[in-house]
Design a binder for these strands. Structure first.
Lengths: 347, 347
DNA sequence: CATTTCTACTGTATCGTTACAGATTGCATT
DNA sequence: AATGCAATCTGTAACGATACAGTAGAAATG
């Protein structure tokens, strides 16, 4: 089916329309294939004038190295694998991350391959697959746990990677994280400044590292600003309908909170529905603060106080980190934390 | 950097820990490499017992063909490229499509590579890149125009592909589309049944094929059910803030509509904001019908009448279509249109 | 018995690239 | 004149898989 560029047998005279290879350039310049290869990678044992000549011809022909050839010979895939959890997603969370990553990769030979999996299944599967088949030069994973087995495995096997979120078990690796502790702390502050004292927290699942960050920020916030917690027995991973129902029950109860901190944008929509179902109104009976990765909440209820997590930026940071790691940069230098921003929801 | 499996020089005794290749299996079975290769693809000239033996050893070793080897030799990449427009996206539209596609691909040797681009730039660029570098066996594109140059080019070059949306210029190719005409027609019906007669349409940009579908459905709807159009001079691609402002102005004007049909979920959020900014209320002063690809609108306003477009399903359909096309199935047989579903928003 | 035919298997070349071990040339050093 | 030594350039082999053109042996044919 595929038309392979077999031009002639002995002398190999390159035909016109085929995709150019090193051989084509070698033929046109009268040089050897090896010389052309080395010239294009600016090797020290090639003359300056020759390099120039080769580069010109290559550009002229629109030469692009054959990925399969390079990969077979060197093992370099020029692929970054993005492992995505398919069930976490209602909003444009992962799209934004993908676009952030590709912004960075667009200036490089790297391609981005999506490796999806369900986090109800074994989360090690996609990572093991990538390692066993050597199908990528670097990996990006999210939903990080304090002692994440994927992080351990990737480190152990020397596969460059970056994580969206941190670990907490003495593992050193590139990551980008949102400062959830600062977010939760500031969220409490905002609520207390509006006179709220009885605050509920819709937290992430406890197995994820940032559960602890959120908790700490929340609790020091309660302490620092003098407020108390109203327990909420559901987390951001629950189905939206469950969140709404549980919030509704809570809001109807005698000790309903007058403030809610919400750790995820999609969950905030369900929380809001629960509040309204209970006949309460934001801004009047209570206030809500939520993190969001896509600026949508204020379109729904301007009263929601929102902190923005820039996931696109996260994608950019992680892409840069993985590439730097591939290039041998120490992991310690490839860690970043972004601060919540509080766009004035005043409109 | 990469550890290539170079075991011994002459006799090539395979070592233990390396990734198995055909050579490994050949060594273990005592057969030739060619025989093993052919046995694994069930070629007719290999004995039944031999095939069985080879398969067992291969399974035992966890053999997976080296993609670079296959690709270099045969030109088959085992890659499906998904060309995504990075600016169209606020909701989880493309994520859902990606997940639908990967559901289908997970049972195959295909990987999914994301090729993003900005539709303000030349939309041919990513397609040309894929064609020129032969970096995929199949392509999926969206935002289709009636005489889409990408469709022309892909057809011309014999590259298998599927589109999300149809063309309208005598081009025959695999596609999956949502029945936007039916949607718009039914939308008008729903509004008229609620007693609405003066209806505005937030339509897609006119260069996209489904602009015409929406228009036709809308206009026959107006005619069939006896309603009139209130012009709305903005489309779904406009910034949300613009949509809101223009809708607000319209709703404040003397001839404000009493019904709105909206062709995109994210735009509906802005339309809703515009309505509220004008002090009008859904269900009382007017009704709105919107298409959505993620079930989010009813969390925002239960009063919005929503039609669901299952983008995940679209992803599945397109993935199946591309693969079928790669396998030589005629394009005519790979076209599908999905009907709008109207989930009872009554929860 | 010689020849053909079929079955089952195999060696070699090749895809495009790069690592490695030369090869050639000119020029300075002994 | 012989030697050493940079500076440049090049041929060969190999990565893993498969297309192609065989080969060996058994069975069928005349």
């Amino acid at each position: 089916m595929e038309n392979k560029g077999n031009f002639g047998n002995a002398a190999s005279t390159p035909a016109a329309r085929e995709r150019p290879t090193l051989k084509t350039i070698a033929f046109m310049t009268g040089l050897g294939v090896t010389t052309v290869s080395r010239a294009l990678k600016d090797a020290p044992d090639i003359g300056a004038e020759t390099k120039e000549r080769v580069r010109m011809v290559a550009r002229q022909l629109g030469y692009q190295p054959n990925r399969a050839g390079v990969r077979l010979r060197t093992g370099k895939t020029n692929v970054i694998a993005l492992v995505l959890s398919i069930d976490e997603e209602i909003m444009g969370f992962s799209s934004q991350m993908v676009f952030g990553i590709s912004e960075v990769l667009s200036g490089t030979p790297y391609h981005i391959v999506i490796t999806p999996h369900s986090h109800s299944k074994d989360p090690m599967l996609p990572v093991r697959y990538i390692l066993d088949t050597g199908s990528a030069d670097g990996v990006i994973i999210s939903r990080i746990e304090p002692d994440d087995p994927r992080v351990r495995l990737l480190s152990e096997r020397g596969m460059p990677f970056a994580t969206h979120g941190r670990t907490d078990a003495g593992l050193t690796h590139p990551f980008h994280d949102f400062d959830n502790e600062a977010f939760a702390h500031q969220a409490v502050e905002k609520l207390v400044k509006r006179g709220r004292r009885r605050i509920a927290l819709l937290q992430p699942p406890s197995k994820l590292t940032y559960y602890a960050h959120i908790r700490i920020g929340f609790q020091t916030g309660l302490h620092d600003y003098g407020a108390e917690e109203v327990p909420l027995r559901v987390n951001t991973d629950a189905p939206l309908a469950d969140i709404r129902d549980i919030v509704e029950v809570m809001m109807r109860s005698a000790n309903a909170p007058d403030g809610i901190v919400c750790s995820a944008g999609s969950a905030a929509i369900a929380v809001n529905a629960g509040i309204e179902a209970a006949g309460k109104a934001l801004g009047r009976d209570l206030d809500m603060v939520s993190k969001q990765s896509v600026p949508i909440l204020n379109w729904i209820r301007p009263e929601i106080i929102t902190a923005q997590e820039d996931v696109r930026q996260a994608g950019r940071e992680m892409a840069k980190a993985v590439i730097a790691r591939i290039d041998g940069v120490e992991p310690e230098l490839l860690q970043s934390v972004s601060q919540p921003t509080w766009p004035e929801s005043g409109r």
